[in-house]
């Protein structure tokens, strides 16, 4: 058992996705590796995914967390839509975390929708990993 299983009961399955047409996915490469190193099971959809596809994959793969990343300024359109689609598909129990180029003023709005984290470039990876573990623990009632 790795550290995550010890603290959260079982492995964390996480989907990393980029909704919309943003092509900047260098951070996703780094994040996927960091999540794997932390003992998570990672599914990366790659860029250019409609929220419907991300939701479908997340449900099929039975993930605990969806991590969304956008750097093109379209997060206030695509992140909320992702939440709507998840709700429509009765998958609102999946934790959604965000990141990318998100201005301070948008962060509380996203938090209110249930999208937490919202970290930008330069955030230490352990801060992001810890945040995800905490959210999953809360979700699992640990």
């Amino acid at each position: 058992m790795n550290m995550i299983e010890n603290t959260t009961g079982r492995k964390i399955r996480i989907l990393v996705g980029k909704p919309g047409l943003d092509c900047h996915d260098r951070a996703c490469v780094v994040l996927c590796q960091a999540f794997r190193d932390a003992g998570m099971e990672v599914i990366y959809t790659g860029p250019y995914q409609p929220p419907e596809r991300i939701a479908e994959t997340a449900i099929e793969e039975d993930v605990d967390v969806i991590a969304l990343s956008l750097l093109d300024g379209r997060h206030m359109t695509h992140f909320p839509r992702q939440m709507e689609v998840l709700k429509e598909r009765n998958a609102a129990d999946i934790c959604v975390v965000g990141g990318g180029r998100i201005p301070e003023k948008d962060k509380p709005l996203l938090e209110k929708m249930g999208i937490t984290g919202n970290y930008g470039a330069g955030t230490p990876l352990n801060v992001i990993v810890d945040h995800i573990i905490e959210r999953v623990k809360k979700e699992r009632g640990i």
């Binding site: 919309g20 047409l21 943003d22 409609p50 093109d72 300024g73 379209r74 359109t77």
Partner: peptide, 9 residues
């Protein structure tokens, strides 16, 4: 797929 992305970056 372009309608909301056109002129963005």
């Amino acid at each position: 797929r372009a309608r909301e992305e056109t002129g963005v970056t």
